[in-house]
Write a protein that binds this DNA or RNA. Structure first.
Ligand SMILES: [Mn+2]
Ligand SMILES: [Mn+2]
Ligand SMILES: [Mn+2]
Ligand SMILES: [Mn+2]
Lengths: 231, 231
DNA sequence: AATAGTTTTTAGCCATGGCTAAATTGTATC
DNA sequence: GATACAATTTAGCCATGGCTAAAAACTATT
């Protein structure tokens, strides 16, 4: 069992290297073509810097780079990306459950911690949480050997009115958005009764914990739910 | 209450900047003259690199630098050093108590984590531990406003034979040494009965948890104890 | 197929913070 | 005070990874 993928690599990866690989992985799984501009915008650096970094990652056999083409992770690159993503999501859950850090703050904290925890600490965290499968936002936690479980659910925006659902995933890391949802009681596993959906992609009327709220359609599209009975 | 001392500073400090300040603080409190060679050896970089860094820290008003003189922390530099040291020791205790990381492994882990935790996380950790005063090695945890409590005790090597003591501090971070002491049952607050001390700085005979062991004099010098009755 | 517009790459700059080797300064000894 | 030795600083090199501006390469439209 190969544990430390940086051991397969001559010089160790910096935090930024790791964040680039993670970004490419996330963009790939979104189904997007990971063009230079998409990547550079996501990562928050200039296109020139992204090209620069991608070429370095290609030299280390972590990505496939062909000029003017979309970047793609190599198997090794994917393993590194998944390892960092595992750190990230384990840390989010740990910070939330063990230290009561609010779910809208764990992301930025994990963004730094993910690069500096050892294998032993990763294992200790996973064990203390009982080897969890999802983070506080319902994002799947990759397993130690790089498997990602498929998460169930469909957007609340495409659900039937008059039924009750359970929130299983929120497709956003935005602090303000998460804080707002939390205020409405829309945290993970919350029960939502969908009263009605206004036509023309209008707002939805939902009931959460006895209170009624209106949700914009694009907000509801980020909420993945399953029927409440199915548990 | 000024919280983030890097906010008083134009550009943020790197991990290395922080480790240099911490090193200078520790060497100062040991009573040593913090010459360039002492610092460079402690920090593990060449003397030229140490000079380089010290000059930068001086430009930021974190240390006083005069060529060919010992370096000294400014009040601001000391605050930064103490903030990082607080992170370090809180993290050591947290890792040990909450995640069962052995006391000989927490140091290297904290060495990286100390630079990336937020003020909020620092507070959450301190709260979850009940605002502790010492780390797993008995080193005092600086308070949020930079106060360091005086730790009691004297070296086991300078103690009276025939009496029982309580271990309150170990003056070493060496992994192997700590692992060895742990195997003997010599963790923090362990009770040690001092049977006899061989003359000419010879080994000491001690009894810990019902077992008898011989301890080299220089090892015993690192163990700070108080009389067991004084609890 | 020419042209216009967009995307990507290249070229070259800069700050950071290591390093080695050489020059300088300080200190101890005769 | 001269001289030797150690400590420190300086000078100059290098890799990293940002950046801007300009060049080049794709893509779409006429
Ligand atoms: Mn990150
Ligand atoms: Mn998440
Ligand atoms: Mn450190
Ligand atoms: Mn310690």
């Amino acid at each position: 069992m190969a544990k430390n993928y940086s051991s397969e690599i001559s010089n160790p990866l910096s935090s930024n290297h790791e964040d680039y690989l993670k970004a490419i992985y996330i963009l790939e799984t979104r189904g997007e073509q990971v063009t230079n501009s998409v990547l550079s915008e996501y990562i928050g650096y200039t296109p020139a810097s992204a090209t620069n970094m991608v070429k370095k990652l290609a030299q280390m056999d972590l990505v496939i780079y062909r000029p003017h083409q979309a970047v793609a992770l190599t198997p090794t690159g994917r393993r590194v990306a998944l390892e960092i993503l595992r750190h990230h999501r384990l840390l989010e859950l740990f910070l939330h459950k063990t230290l009561d850090i609010p779910w809208d703050s764990v992301h930025e904290e994990a963004e730094r911690l993910e690069h500096v925890i050892s294998e032993a600490l990763e294992d200790a965290i996973a064990a203390s949480l009982g080897y969890p499968k999802v983070d506080p936002h319902g994002d799947p936690i990759p397993s130690k050997n790089g498997e990602v479980s498929h998460t169930p659910g469909h957007p609340l925006s495409q659900s039937e009115a008059g039924r009750t659902y359970r929130l299983v995933r929120v497709l956003s890391q935005e602090k303000e958005r998460l804080a707002y949802l939390g205020e409405l009681g829309l945290h993970l596993n919350a029960e939502v009764h969908l009263r009605e959906q206004a036509p023309f992609d209008g707002p939805m009327l939902v009931e959460v914990a006895g209170e009624e709220h209106a949700l914009a359609a694009d907000m509801a599209a980020l909420l993945q739910v399953v029927p409440a009975s199915a548990e």
